[in-house]
Simulated scan of single mutants.
Amino acid sequence: MKIAYSPCPNDTFVFHAWAHGLIEGAPELDVMYADIDITNGLAASGEGPEVLKISYAALPWVLQDYALLPCGGALGRGCGPLVLTANAAAAGNPAALTGKKVAVPSERSTAYLLFRLWAAQNVPGGVGEIVVMPFHEIMPAVRDGQIDAGLVIHEARFTYQNYGLTLLADMGNWWEGDTGLPIPLGAIIAKRSLDLEAIAGWARASVEYAWAHPEASRDYVMCHAQEMSPDVARQHIGLYVNEFTRDLGDKGYEAVTVLLSRAAQEGLVPEFDLALLK
């Protein structure tokens, strides 16, 4: 079975057991490691692999062909995208982004969707140019003055100070304060033509194996961790792999529904049948 997910520690931790043949009855995986912008595009193309990790924000474009699985993804609290700048005076000042050049990790990323919803309420006059960059290139670009601000995800939450950057706004804090709901980030989807219940079971078993044997995936995680320190990798996993990874549950589905309903009302994503989320 072909699957695509990122080389980030949360994904490699979650899928280690399945990718290494440790889940009884699960098919062998042919893994493609790809940035979220690439997997979002693969899913929308109609020619993607059977299973993918994509942004929740990209779901409206793919739900006719792919189903959302209730496990394996990234959704939580205190783990939202950050807006960073090299201008220390801009800390906590959304107006500093008016007319500025901002880098984002994908046009269809949940991070960018949250940013657009937040900016509509908080940035008078709107931001200027939006540039799409692989997420690991954003902080160096902000540091070097190539862009005015960057929207970052993943382990950047733990490392941005190393680049001399300042937190301008936390999209997760805004979302949680505005809705009281967890933050939907990355979704696991599978082609509707497949046995979805079985795939969800294998994914959940892989999550549970990872928790039961946390050291088993260490080498696999670190060999894909893009020179990340083991300590940062552990923090990354601790933040993004949680009970919502095992099962979205009612709160998880509510968070996804509210996010995408708001986005559709604002014209940021296509209208779609909400029943397709379950």
Score class of each variant (00 low, 15 high):
A169S: 09
I183T: 09
E227M: 07
M228S: 11
H236F: 10
I237C: 01
N173Y: 15
G180D: 14
G238H: 06
D170R: 08
A169W: 05
H236T: 10
A225V: 01
P230L: 01
R234N: 10
A233T: 04
R218F: 15
L239E: 06
N173C: 14
E197K: 10
W175A: 15
G172C: 12
V241P: 05
R218I: 03
N173M: 14
A205L: 05
Q226M: 12
A205Q: 09
Q235G: 02
L168S: 00
L196P: 00
M228F: 07
P182W: 07
N173A: 15
A210S: 12
Q226F: 11
A212K: 11
Q235N: 07
I199S: 01
E176R: 07
H224Y: 08
M171S: 12
E197R: 08
A187N: 01
R192M: 10
L167Q: 07
L185K: 12
I183A: 13
W202Q: 04
P182T: 02
A225S: 05
L185M: 12
R218P: 03
N173Q: 14
K191S: 09
I189G: 07
V221Q: 04
S206H: 03
G180H: 14
L167S: 09
Y209L: 14
C223L: 14
D219R: 02
N173V: 12
H224E: 05
E208I: 02
D231F: 10
R218Y: 07
G186K: 06
P214G: 13
E215S: 14
W211Q: 09
E197D: 05
A198Q: 15
C223W: 11
A212P: 06
L196M: 05
L168D: 00
R234I: 08
Y209W: 13
V207A: 13
W174L: 10
L181A: 13
E208D: 15
R204D: 10
Y209P: 01
S206I: 14
N242H: 07
E176Y: 12
S206C: 02
E197T: 08
S193I: 15
A205N: 10
D219T: 04
E215W: 03
I189H: 06
G201R: 00
D219E: 13
N242R: 03
A203P: 04
